[in-house]
Design a protein around this nucleic acid. Structure first.
Length: 478
RNA sequence: GGCGCGAUAGCAAAGCGGUUAUGCAGCGGAUUGCAAAUCCGUUUAGCCCAGUUCGACUCUGGGUCGCGCCUCCA
């Protein structure tokens, strides 16, 4: 039985889908006014892994990850760039897709954009008004009346009193309660037509929180299984989503809330405002994308993850060990397919002759993933399996290593491509390396070991490691 | 100030009330012309103080330190 840590109840719970064998999952995605950084990479990779595990476990998954394409920062950035909102957001949506693809993140089933769901948002705000939970203030904004919603604070564990006590000096004078938040922002004269929509409350644009409530219910229903996002969205964003959706629909919104931990730099949260962030594309210039993915998945999704070159180097070394094991065994035949119950119904490792050990490892892998997506433990199983591959040279064990890793979106490339790949420009090309290896083999045949060692050293200095095997000499990049 | 999370070996990171985590690094051996890779073995743990227990890294209480949310943030 799959267990998930639920932020709402603060403990691990058995996962029970609303509809048998079906998972409906919504994850808060990006606000597209800039390139994605490593924190965004973590959200995308983590929930991609979650989604893959559900599929591998035989569930039908409906995965929604939204795109916020209208908000203050977007408006500001577009103005600075003298660019239309649409051009700006489309540019960064394309960039996001490039980054996600590189990291092996599968496209969600839906990527709704806020600007395409304004009618649904207005409808929802109207319901809230009808239910006495929303009001239009003197400044024209429509606000949510937080004190009218009983459950406010249940996700973040905060009470209204606590929140008021810690309140910073505020400006929003037209709110009935300082904690009320905006559902509909009335348009300002100075704003472009592109950011104004008609409504019964006058021209304006949606507040941030309402888009997720509206798109979630439109695509997944008023009540769905899982809602995820970064831990910083727990409050106020997700708390407000609950208030909106439950206030409008009068039923439970989400059963399981999942929040991933932050990426840190020097023990501090990586964030735009601190300016200590690295964009995905920046990191991919230095490190292979699969190394970055592996780096993310070898930590538990709820733990903090410290970013540094040393940690990436470490991840690279570890992933190299896995690919090296795969390299030593001839390419495997058919892999158990992902999904369609493949991994689970035909027991992971089933059909492996004399592979008792592999079967145990497969069971351990499943147990780890079922325990709140414990990828560090699942990765440890991968290493034990690699050891088994190295020892037995079993094609089946290698096939299983690839099959299990596929659930994490890892090890799907040709081993040689990984080991010889180079994200940096320049250096020796394959032809030049082959030529040097041939020269060294001649030297070895002539027992001229000094020359052979000289060639090897020469290659090592440009980052090429030679390995003599019974089948001949192979090479990889250090 | 309010609320929450965490503290594991040189680094990273899991499970577990008693029995090998795992990766990198180190050390010894096998293998190799020498290496690399691999295999076998092995050294470094569990912030501090109490308590529960036959037994605690694991449970309970207190403390210390670190981090986060309470404002936009993944």
């Amino acid at each position: 039985m799959l267990k998930i840590y639920n932020t709402l109840t603060r403990d691990k719970q058995d996962f029970k889908p609303i509809t048998p064998n079906t998972v409906r999952m919504y994850v808060c995605g990006m606000t597209v006014y800039d390139y994605c950084h490593l924190g965004h990479a973590r959200v995308m990779v983590v929930f991609d892994m979650v989604q893959r595990w559900f599929k591998a476990s035989g569930y039908d998954v409906n995965y929604v990850r939204n795109i916020t394409d209208i908000d203050d920062k977007i408006i500001k950035r577009a103005a600075e760039n003298k660019e239309s909102i649409h051009a700006l957001t489309q540019r960064f949506i394309d960039a996001m897709h490039q980054d996600a693809d590189a990291l092996g993140v599968q496209r969600p089933d839906h990527e709704p954009r806020a600007t395409q769901y304004v009618p649904q948002m207005l409808e929802m705000i109207e319901s809230l008004e009808k239910n006495g939970l929303a009001y239009q203030a003197a400044d024209g904004d429509v606000n949510y009346a937080v004190r009218k919603f009983d459950g406010y604070g249940k996700l973040s564990g905060k009470s209204l009193e606590d929140l008021r006590a810690g309140e910073r000096v505020d400006i929003a004078t037209d709110k009935k309660d300082p904690l009320d938040f905006v559902l509909w922002k009335s348009a300002k004269e100075s704003e472009a037509d592109e950011v104004k929509w008609d409504s019964k409350w006058g021209k304006g644009r949606p507040g941030w929180h309402i888009e997720c409530s509206a798109m979630g219910s439109e695509l997944l229903g008023d009540h769905f299984d899982i809602h995820g996002g970064g831990a910083d969205l727990q409050f106020p964003h997700h708390e407000n989503e609950i208030a909106q959706s439950e206030g409008a629909h009068q039923c439970q919104y989400v059963n399981y809330w999942m929040h991933n931990g932050f990426v840190r730099v020097d023990n501090e949260k990586m964030s735009k405002s601190l300016g200590n962030f690295f964009t995905i594309r920046e990191v991919l210039k230095k490190y292979d994308a699969e190394v970055v993915r592996f780096f993310i998945l070898r930590a538990h999704y709820r733990s903090p993850l410290n970013y540094s070159d040393q940690h990436l180097d470490d991840a690279k070394g570890a992933l190299t060990r896995l690919y090296t094991a795969l390299k030593s065994v001839p390419p495997s035949p058919a892999l158990p397919p992902e999904g369609e119950g493949g991994l689970l119904s035909s027991p992971i490792g089933g059909g492996i002759e004399g592979g008792g050990k592999s079967v145990d490892l497969a069971a351990r892998f499943k147990a780890a993933m079922d325990d709140d997506f414990n990828t560090p433990e699942a990765v440890a199983v991968l290493f034990d399996l690699a050891n088994e591959v190295n020892r037995s040279q079993s094609i089946q064990a290698a096939a299983q290593l690839k099959a299990l890793a596929s659930v994490l979106g890892l090890l799907q490339r040709d081993a040689q491509d990984f080991l010889q790949g180079d994200v940096n420009e320049g250096g020796l090309d394959d032809g030049a390396i082959s030529e040097r290896i041939a020269a060294r083999i001649d030297a070895k045949k002539a027992k001229n070991f000094a020359e052979a060692d000289r060639i090897r050293k020469e290659l090592l200095e440009v980052g090429i490691v030679l390995e003599d095997t019974p089948q001949g000499t192979t090479w990889r990049r250090a």
